[in-house]
């Protein structure tokens, strides 16, 4: 239970970083922290103490079936990390472009649109 709670703490920390910091690079770091908090959550879902790799062939001992780790969350995390990488690359390139335009990373100085 504690680990799930820590995941939630990490998620909240990312959200806080995103909301409270003015620097857009720090905002990106906040998003990445949130992303990884969820990845960690998915990994914890699939965790099994003393688990073994889920490979089945003719010689697999049937007793091992109980100890197989669930491979699906790991596949989900891999996909999610790849997506996160794409989002991060686009974010960073946008921040660099913003810096070129404004000469600053401060969101309050960049912000002209009124939302």
């Amino acid at each position: 239970m504690t680990v799930y709670f820590l995941c939630a703490v990490l998620l909240t920390m990312g959200l806080y970083c995103l909301v409270a910091k003015k620097n857009i690079v720090k905002k990106i770091i906040g998003v990445v922290i949130m992303d990884y908090a969820v990845n960690l959550y998915l990994i914890i879902i699939g965790y099994k103490k003393g688990g073994v790799a889920p490979i089945i062939d003719k010689t697999t001992n049937p007793e091992l079936l109980e100890r197989f780790v669930d491979p699906l969350p790991q596949a989900l995390v891999l996909t999610s990390i790849v997506i996160g990488l794409g989002v991060l690359a686009l974010m960073v390139s946008m921040v660099i472009r913003l810096y070129e335009k404004h000469g600053t990373f401060d969101m309050s100085q960049i912000s002209k649109l009124r939302g």
């Binding site: 690359a89 960073v92 390139s93 660099i96 472009r97 070129e100």
Partner: peptide
């Protein structure tokens, strides 16, 4: 390509920073 694109940006703007 992503790395090359970001490196190209760096040459232009980050040196000044």
């Amino acid at each position: 390509l992503v790395f090359a694109a970001l490196a190209m940006f760096r040459r232009r703007s980050f040196r000044a920073m």
